[in-house]
Structure formats: structure tokens, C-alpha cells
Design a protein around this nucleic acid. Structure first.
Lengths: 254, 254
DNA sequence: CATGGATTTTGACATATATCAAACCGTTGT
DNA sequence: ACAACGGTTTGATATATGTCAAAATCCATG
């Protein structure tokens, strides 16, 4: 989706040198990548922001970060690990609406109603930084660049959803899976991780739910890609052998 | 989706009485329903907000409010008429991502990249109020309730998209159409218009694109609902005969 | 009021994906 | 090491929806 700029990363101290046009920082206690990186803040402002996110919490695989109906207190910046968000259908079935990884912000769904509209579940043991939403709002009233960036994050989420609507509405199984893998690839790349070899932290079931497919169809699509030499999968480990050829899967006509 | 509260509507003058807890207003030159209604503003603040939206523009059926790639200048409050938003696929096909009607805000997709990520096309002759985004941002820095509400509007859009993901990912043709009609019904109801008799301003093709179906499938679903006595359709005119029975279509298992 | 083009409906058929079922792993715990 | 269990793969079949084609209807225009 959105192009990511290169960045520095680390867990060193708070003080950073301010680089010419783009402030490159990593928060002392949390990689607030999404929230901080493109924002052009002074060091003093950064410190204010960091004060926001003093609380870091751990979540074990399968535990809930929040549940449908929970009151909105905070947004969360994922410091390590990953989550899924899911709607719960009246009739019991669930639909995965997204997978979130390191550096992404989770919880935006709750702002409209003051209550969370989906569940967020840890896919592995994970750490999140809590960003009390009231404080975020008041700080963004003082810092126009933070305000703008908060708006951008929300708008990105809208654009992301629209991309998935496109995927669900007009792509077939293998195109969907290709799009999904390429999206993961880009997100790993943007974090300086390998864009071709990574772990799938979610089950075939969850991938299927996200892509509007049955788990068997997902499995078959994986097998097919493998037979065609596009990827090499071993259950949860995947290597993309040709990003280019995978990309060309997206442009098949019907 | 979100519950709508009752409201007053009209094109009278600016001055309004402030009701106990909820300010109920209609802007003098634009029904900024989405933007104003749930916001608890003083009359002075209201006037500031109205100053924002002095520009009202007309769009004829089929004309573009904005196009993919256009620079973000403003959000738009629909004063009359309706629009569709659509993505354009690389390979030329388009996917409708939403239909917007009176009182709704359009343009939120552009904030993330400073450029519009979809086309917005008038479905009929329509009027919009322009809300320069810079002014909206600076005003919302001064007015916390406006800020909060702007956030809510964006978040609602996120939740709306997630609802459509659910629809596209796990409902079949007739369930999708039922959900679509019920959603329209609610939105008409919230505007004080008939929830059971209204015009469909979009083609079967556009409905299909939005619902991830072919136009023939949409047409067949309409016919089927009609045969079952749930609705009465005559091309673009529809009457819902039993909201309740239509609603029960949503809960069929597979 | 008649004509022509676009939209919608209906039909027959093809196909992608769902569904059901069984076999195959990989992991966990005893 | 073995058993037990959940997740995954693979196979056979069913079905909802897509596709193609023709007829019917609507709507704009002269």
C-alpha cells in the first residue's frame, strides 16, 4: 500500500540527532514507527509523545488485546509480535479483518462508537505500547504535525480496507493469496526484514477467513504456487522464490 | 452500522436554539449532518464552522467530484444527490467502493497520501459543500468536540469498510443484496425519508461491482426477492414489503 | 409518438470454489 | 517412543455464481 521510507531502528536512548528533513527516531521504550516516523517533531515534542506511551504490556499467543464492546481507552502500537482483528458474526462465525505486525497501530475501529467493534487477538507472544487516546487527542491539538499524521494513519486504514474490498470483490482465490503474500512481503521489507523468507503466524483457516476463502482453497493455492515454483512453503514457513512472477499473478483477466 | 439519533432538518436561518445536551442544527447553506450533528458546539463555534463551508458546487449526473490522483484540497459534505466512489484496477476494471448520500462526508480516502485514492462520480445531479481540509484541521485543533467528531467520522468509515469485508468475505449473493437494501433503508430512515420506498440511483452493474457480483446475479436476486414477496422492484424504484423478512435473509447459515 | 441505444431480465451452460471425507503431518504430553 | 490432537494436505463431488447470448424493457431524442 503506502510507500515506506527507510529508517533507523533500535532501542537506544531517547536523545537523537535531528536529521535534515526527516526526523528518524526510535522511541526509547517502544518503536512507534507508524506514529512517529513520518512526523517532523522536535526532540522536545518527541519526548512529550514518548511520555504518552509509558505503559508496555505483554500478551501471550491467543490472548485478547481487546474484545468487541470494550470501551475505548487507548490505541496500541505493536512493539513486537503480531495480532489479528476479527468481527464476530451474529451466527457465531468470525471473519478476520486484518493482521497487524510490529510498528503498526491497532484499535482505530473503536473511535467511532467509543467501543471496540472487533476483537484483537495475539497470534504469538507480543508486546504493545499503550497510547491513551485522550492524551493522543490533546497532544495532537498542540502538535499539528502529529494531528496530521494521526489523520493519515486513519485514512490509510480506510484505503487499506478499500484495497481488501477490491480483492474480495474481484479477485479469485490465487490472486487473493498472491496479493496477501506480496502485502506481507512489503511490510516485512519496510521493517528491514527479509521480504522473501518469513513465518506465517496465522493458520490456513485465518488466512482463508481474511481472504474470503475456505482453508482448503488456501491450501490448494499454496500447493499450486509451489508446484509452479513461485514459492516454497513448509506449513508456517514460506520462501517467495520469485516476487516478480508472484506479482504477475495479480493481473490475470477474469 | 452506527445508530443515528433523531434530528431536525431544514434550510432556515443560521440561528438555532441550543437544546439541552445535543445541539441540533442545520447549516444555513449546507446540511452538514455528519459533521455537525453529534458535535456539541456553541453557536459561535457553529458559525466558525459554517464559514468553512461557504462554497457550494453543482455536479451533473456522471461528472467527477474528484479523480484518482487529484491532490487533496477539501472534504465534501453532500448537500443533495448522491455519489459513488470507485477504485480503478490496473487492468481497467473498476470496483465501486461505496455509495454516498445526502449528509455524508466524502473524500476521506485522500488524507493518507494527500491525493485521492479513488474516483467520486455523481449518480444524479448533486450539490456538495466544500470543506477545505486545512481549515478543518486547524479549526479542529481549537475545538476538541469537532476534533473528536472528525475522528469519529473517519473511524466510522473504517468500521463501514470492515462491514463490507464481512459481506464480501462470507455472504452469498442474496444475503449481500439484502444487506445492501437494508443499509440503504436505514440511511433513508435516518434522514426522515421513507425506509421502504425509494429510488435506486445506481445501475445493476454498479450494485454488482459494490457487492462483488455480476449484474445478472444482482438482477436474479432482485427477481427472487420479488417472487418471494419481500420486495417490489420496477427497475430503479423499489418498495420493501417486509423489512423483517428481508432481515431474516441475513442469517442463513452457509 | 416513434426510433434506437442502453439497461435489465431471463435462459442455458461452464467453472471456480465450497463441501465432505480421508489421509497426512507436527507438536505436545505421558 | 507413543499416543492423541489440531492443523494441513489431497481427493471426489456438489453448487453457487460467472459467462455468454437473446429477448424484453426502459429512456432519451428527434
Amino acid at each position: 500500500m503506502a510507500a515506506h521510507s527507510p529508517f533507523l531502528e533500535g532501542n537506544q536512548n531517547v536523545q537523537r540527532s535531528v536529521l535534515p528533513s526527516q526526523l528518524k527516531i526510535a522511541c526509547s521504550n517502544c518503536n512507534l514507527r507508524e506514529l512517529c516516523l513520518p512526523v517532523d517533531l522536535s526532540i522536545g515534542e518527541m519526548q512529550q509523545l514518548e511520555l504518552l506511551s509509558h505503559a508496555k504490556h505483554n500478551y501471550t499467543r491467543g490472548s485478547y488485546l481487546y474484545r468487541i464492546g470494550d470501551k475505548l481507552h487507548s490505541l496500541y502500537a505493536i512493539h513486537s509480535g503480531s495480532f489479528k482483528t476479527q468481527f464476530l458474526h451474529e451466527d457465531g462465525r468470525e471473519q478476520v479483518t486484518g493482521f497487524q505486525m510490529v510498528g503498526e497501530i491497532i484499535g482505530l475501529d473503536a473511535i467511532s462508537t467509543d467501543r471496540h467493534n472487533c476483537d484483537a487477538v495475539a497470534l504469538e507472544n507480543s508486546e504493545v505500547c499503550e497510547l491513551p487516546f485522550n492524551k493522543l487527542e490533546s497532544l495532537s491539538r498542540e502538535l499539528p504535525s502529529l494531528q496530521r499524521h494521526l489523520h493519515k494513519i486513519m485514512s490509510s486504514e480506510i484505503v487499506r480496507s478499500q484495497g481488501i474490498m477490491l480483492l474480495l470483490g474481484s479477485m479469485r482465490a490465487e490472486q487473493r493469496l498472491a496479493a496477501f503474500l506480496l502485502n506481507l512481503s512489503q511490510r516485512f521489507a519496510a521493517r528491514g526484514l527479509s521480504p522473501t523468507r518469513f513465518q506465517l503466524r496465522m493458520s490456513r483457516q485465518e488466512i482463508g477467513s481474511y481472504l474470503g476463502l475456505q482453508l482448503e482453497t488456501v491450501s490448494r493455492a499454496f500447493s499450486h504456487f509451489q508446484d509452479d515454483g513461485l514459492i516454497s512453503v513448509k506449513v508456517r514457513s514460506i520462501e517467495i522464490l520469485s516476487l516478480q512472477r508472484l506479482q504477475s499473478c495479480l493481473n490475470s483477466s477474469p
